[in-house]
Amino acid sequence: MAFVILGLIFIALKLLDVAPVAAWSWWWVLLPLALAFVWWEIIDPMFSISKKRAMNDMADRQKARRQKYRESLGLGGERRKK
């Protein structure tokens, strides 16, 4: 997401002719958008980064929900291990 934001900022600065970016080639201005594309289409699926993060978030929500239900039933905190 940072690459996309950086790319949009560079495009705005290029179109508004702001000092250092106005002198850059369009290739340099659009490079962050190309990097974002490479990240989302190649690197992220290859290493399943987003999928792992989503699964961890779902497991955390599930654990919190179970804990809330246990507390509402009056069973207290975590289970004791035998």
Rank of each mutant, 00 (worst) to 15 (best):
W40F: 12
A59G: 04
A36C: 02
Q62V: 05
S50V: 11
F47Y: 13
F37Q: 08
V29P: 04
L73R: 11
P45R: 01
M55F: 15
V18L: 01
P32N: 01
L30W: 06
R53M: 06
D57Y: 13
K14Q: 05
A59E: 09
I9H: 07
V4P: 12
L73W: 10
A23D: 04
L6E: 10
W24M: 00
A12K: 08
F3E: 05
A19D: 12
K82I: 12
R61A: 12
D57T: 09
G7P: 03
K14P: 00
E41H: 12
A54F: 07
A36Y: 05
L8C: 10
I43E: 03
A22R: 07
R79Y: 03
V38M: 05
N56V: 04
L13G: 11
W24K: 04
N56C: 15
G7M: 03
V18Q: 07
R66P: 07
W28C: 02
P45G: 00
L33R: 05
G74L: 02
I49C: 04
L73G: 06
S25Q: 10
K68D: 08
P32A: 04
A64H: 08
E41D: 15
I11N: 00
A19V: 10
A59T: 13
V21M: 03
I11W: 01
Q67V: 14
L31H: 07
R79T: 08
K63T: 14
W26L: 06
A36T: 09
R66Q: 08
R61D: 09
V29T: 06
R79D: 11
M55W: 15
R65F: 03
K14E: 03
L75S: 02
F3G: 08
P20A: 02
Q67W: 12
S48W: 09
W28F: 05
P20D: 02
W28L: 03
L30N: 00
L15K: 03
W28D: 08
G76W: 01
R53H: 10
A64Q: 10
R80Y: 12
I42Y: 07
R79P: 14
L35D: 04
R70S: 00
D60T: 08
D17P: 09
D17M: 06
